[in-house]
């Protein structure tokens, strides 16, 4: 893979994704050693530029960066302070002047990672741009699925909940289709797109949608992105679309339950399912570290500046 940025899952072919996952699998072994650090990216500097509050993604990136021996700088910006293009431009030009190698960026607006990649001579990794994409989440989900199911060909994957506000849903849909899996969207009509993307089946009934699926990806109900009423109450939402034991029983017996976190127990997922034997949620967290190490490693080849 000779790529400089990771901005959208559309940039990655099947072979690219498997290459990233193969290396991530080896990084999981590194993470089990006494000495968890390798010298691969010694001397490189990473700036974590987070315009949206994030604890787990930022922490995951930061640990991954440190395990690869990079120097890490966290540039946390309060979500409200910078929304104008001009100040974003000034910020990144300042950071560029520090002479950094990577920018990991999260922003509430779609396209900010692209903007940075266009205006800055660094490798850019999209850690979530608005409701658009979150490619490293899709990659860590793919690694988790591959570990449990072996391959993707013909797998039925249901993505459940707040689809329209979810960058996780979009990146997963693109990545899983590239890998050969079939994707279903399940949720209330208000939280699904008006038209199904090519190849995606949509269900308004969770009981109907979960029938025979191999993988269930639950999404967080994102109150912070909802400026109008999409459903009456959270209790009402749970009643109709929450993942309960009974509903889980509609899926294949060996189906796995995933969630990108943080979970709203009792809203999108019942506690006994979240802690149940089919959940792989903490495995996703570990895989997140390994996948992010792998992405940094594969993007850091020399002399590919466009």
């Amino acid at each position: 893979m000779t790529r400089k940025h990771l901005i959208t899952m559309r940039d990655l072919g099947k072979a690219d994704i498997h290459q990233i996952l193969d290396t991530a699998a080896s990084f999981k072994d590194v993470l089990k050693r006494d000495i968890k650090k390798v010298p691969a990216l010694r001397g490189k500097t990473v700036v974590n530029l987070f315009y949206e509050p994030s604890t787990r993604t930022r922490t995951s990136f930061e640990i991954a960066e440190k395990r690869l021996s990079t120097d890490v700088v966290n540039f946390a910006v309060a979500s409200s302070s910078v929304t104008k293009g001009e100040s974003l431009f000034d910020t990144i030009k300042n950071i560029e002047a520090y002479g950094v190698d990577f920018v990991v960026v999260r922003h509430s607006s779609t396209g900010v990672p692209n903007f940075i990649a266009e205006h800055m001579d660094v490798s850019v990794i999209n850690a979530g741009d608005g409701i658009n994409e979150h490619p490293t989440q899709a990659l860590l989900d793919a690694l988790t699925i591959r570990e449990h199911k072996g391959s993707f060909e013909g797998l039925e994957v249901a993505i459940v909940g707040d689809i329209i506000h979810s960058r996780v849903a979009r990146s997963n849909m693109i990545g899983l289709q590239t890998l050969g899996a079939k994707v279903r969207y399940i949720g209330p009509p208000t939280l699904l797109p008006p038209q199904a993307p090519p190849g995606v089946k949509m269900y308004y009934s969770i009981e109907e949608g979960l029938k025979g699926v191999d993988v269930i990806i639950m999404l967080r109900i994102q109150m912070e992105r909802m400026n109008k009423s999409f459903f009456p109450t959270t209790a009402d939402y749970f009643c109709h679309w929450g993942l309960t034991k009974d509903r889980l029983a509609m899926a294949k017996k060996d189906a796995i339950v995933m969630h990108p976190g943080p979970m709203n127990r009792g809203i999108e997922i019942a506690s006994d399912v979240a802690d149940g034997p089919q959940n792989v949620i903490l495995q996703q967290v570990t895989n997140g570290l390994a996948v992010r190490m792998s992405v940094l490693y594969h993007l850091s080849g020399g002399e590919h500046h466009a």
């Binding site: 290396t23 080896s26 390798v38 691969a40 080849g301 020399g302 002399e303």
Partner: peptide, 15 residues
């Protein structure tokens, strides 16, 4: 991950 030519290589090998 321990090679001394990583920063010179265009394409990093699968680990």
């Amino acid at each position: 991950l321990y090679r001394d030519d990583l920063s010179l290589r265009k394409d990093h090998p699968v680990v």
